[in-house]
Each structure stands twice: as C-alpha cells, then as structure tokens.
C-alpha cells in the first residue's frame, strides 16, 4: 500500500477532530481572525461535513487594532464561504469597564482579548471553540491536546490535562465548562502553506511582500499604524516586507521579504531559520508569556 504524504495524513487527522467536535458538542465556533491558520481550519470544516454545511459559525475577537486588509478579507471570506460571522470587540469590553487599555510605548490589546473571548464564549454558550493553534508554534502550545478542557472560568490546567491516548477523545464536560479544539495541532507553518497551495485558497494580501512604512522593534519591523505610538527616536522608513502571522498590529511584526506568490512564500518559509512566533512581540514579553496567557483562557 502506498504511504500517504505527511500533509494528507495531517489533513485526515484534522477532519477526524472536526467531526468529533461536531459529534460531541451542540454549540461550536471557529475562532476566525482572517489569518492563514483560521482560514485553513474553516476550509477543513467545509471538507469534513461535505455535502452538508459545517455546523460551526465564525467568531472573531477584534482588538480594534487589526490591519484593515485582514478585516476586509474576513468579511469577504465569511460571505463567500457561507459562514455566519460574529464579531466581538475589545473596545466594547473596555467601554463596559471589563478591561483597561495598557499604556506606554509597547502597549497592546493582545492580552485584553482573553476577557472578550471568554465573554463571547459565555454569551453564545459555546461548548467548544475551535482554534488554529499548532504545537510547533510555541513551547507551551507544544503541550496542548487536540481537545483541551477549560474550567468554568475558562482556564487551562496544563499540569492536569486529560491524556489523549490513541485517538480516543474524552470530550465529556460539566455545565459551564468548555473545550478548545485544535485540529491543526500536528501541523507546521509549512504544512499550512502547502495546504493553501494545494487547494488554491485566498489569503490576506499582507502575507505577501508589499511596501509599507515600518519602524524597527527588536528583530522585526512594526507597521506604522494609528495604533502604534512611536518613540521619539523612531525613524519610520518604507521597506518591502511581509507578515508571517496576522494578529494585532501592535504586536505583529513584519519581515523583509520579496515573496509575492504562495510558491515564493513556501520557499522562504522552508529556508527561514527563525520561527514565525519570533515576529510576535506578545510572546517576547517573558519566557513563559504564552503559558501565562493560556492559563487565563487565551487562544
């Protein structure tokens, strides 16, 4: 028998997990940012339940600091693919006094999203939220389960996770608890791009090389947007860059790049000696920044 390619196997694994999510839970949302990982998850969901429609809706937690290209893409994607899209904003959480903006030169709403997300989960009474997080992204995410239990406060308990033995999923939960489901757990950044290439999926333009006004922050370029406060000695310049991840504009850095097609992006990713999370300021805050945020209920 012919052995399947790694990507085919990962695709089958992800579809299995999406079907398990549908079988176990009544109210499920795909956490959809318009980034490449969530695009892949939404496409896999279409494939998993074909010819029926996926029994999931798209939920976006908008920090209000997103790139306009991504938001435009998000709305178009939902419309063209027949998904119901629900957007909840960090600004609304701020207005309600649930959270407060950070201040200072590296202020970001990244951490604030957790409260908005958990509020949305309880508003929609979600049994599960499906995310595109991958184990290869980050060392705390490397410890995640496919079906990751969250207590009634939305918290993760990494030291007492349910063992996932074989492919037997224990998705039982009590009222008020929920699961995060990560069908792409075993994928790499390269798998995501090869999937996009294989099925000729559209992705936001900011993933491809373009000219943009940027300032240097650490090892990456931060796009100059109204959401980023500049230091007095910042010298904005125009450069040809692209983004490897798409998140909040305040913490997502760009890299120098000339990759303007999916093929070129794949070549670039293959040759890269840095991880995609190295472009994220939110992970650089401390060694355990991701674990700490995840404990609170982050993506």
């Amino acid at each position: 028998m012919l052995l399947k390619s790694g990507l085919e196997e990962l695709e089958a694994e992800a579809i299995f997990m999406l079907r398990e999510a549908a079988a176990h839970f009544d109210r499920v949302a795909i956490l959809f940012s318009g980034g490449k990982d969530s695009i892949v998850v939404a496409h896999l969901a279409k494939r998993a339940f074909w010819p029926a429609k996926p029994p999931f809706f798209l939920l976006h937690v908008d920090t209000g600091h997103n790139f306009p290209e991504t938001l435009e893409f998000r709305d178009r994607f939902a419309h063209e693919n027949g998904f119901d899209l629900q957007v909840r904003t960090v600004q609304a959480s701020i207005d309600q006094g649930r959270v407060q903006d950070e201040v200072g030169p590296n202020a970001s709403r990244n951490g604030l999203q957790t409260v908005t997300l958990l509020d949305a989960i309880s508003e929609f009474r979600l049994d599960a939220a499906i995310g595109g997080a991958r184990r290869d992204e980050e060392k705390a995410r490397a410890k995640e389960r496919f079906f990751s239990h969250r207590n009634t406060f939305g918290q993760w308990d990494p030291r007492n996770q349910r063992p996932e033995v074989w492919r037997l999923i224990n998705a039982r939960k009590k009222h008020g608890e929920h699961f995060r489901v990560f069908p792409l757990s075993n994928w790499t950044e390269l798998d995501v791009w090869e999937f996009i290439q294989k099925y000729e999926l559209a992705v936001p333009d900011i993933y491809f090389a373009h000219e943009r006004e940027v300032v240097k922050r650490g090892s990456v370029w931060l796009g100059v947007t109204p959401f980023v406060s500049l230091h007095p000695d910042d010298k904005p310049e125009r450069r040809k860059v692209r983004f490897r991840t798409v998140g909040d504009a305040t913490c997502t850095g760009a890299i120098d790049s000339s990759a303007s097609t999916i093929e070129e992006v794949i070549d670039e990713v293959r040759a890269s000696r840095r991880t995609e999370r190295s472009t994220r300021a939110d992970d650089q805050r401390s060694d355990a920044a991701m674990e700490d945020r995840k404990l609170q209920g982050y993506f």
Binding site: R135, E138, A142, K143, P158
Partner: peptide, 18 residues
C-alpha cells in the same frame, strides 16, 4: 515547555516536535 518542567528540570507532559 512548561514552567514547572523548566524549574524542576524534568519532563512531565508529552511534548511534540518536528
């Protein structure tokens, strides 16, 4: 990858690497 593993210098949970 977990704080507890790094402070105790032991592997507690399974970690996946490519």
């Amino acid at each position: 990858g977990l704080r507890a593993e790094r402070s105790q210098k032991i592997t507690i949970d399974v970690a996946y690497r490519h």
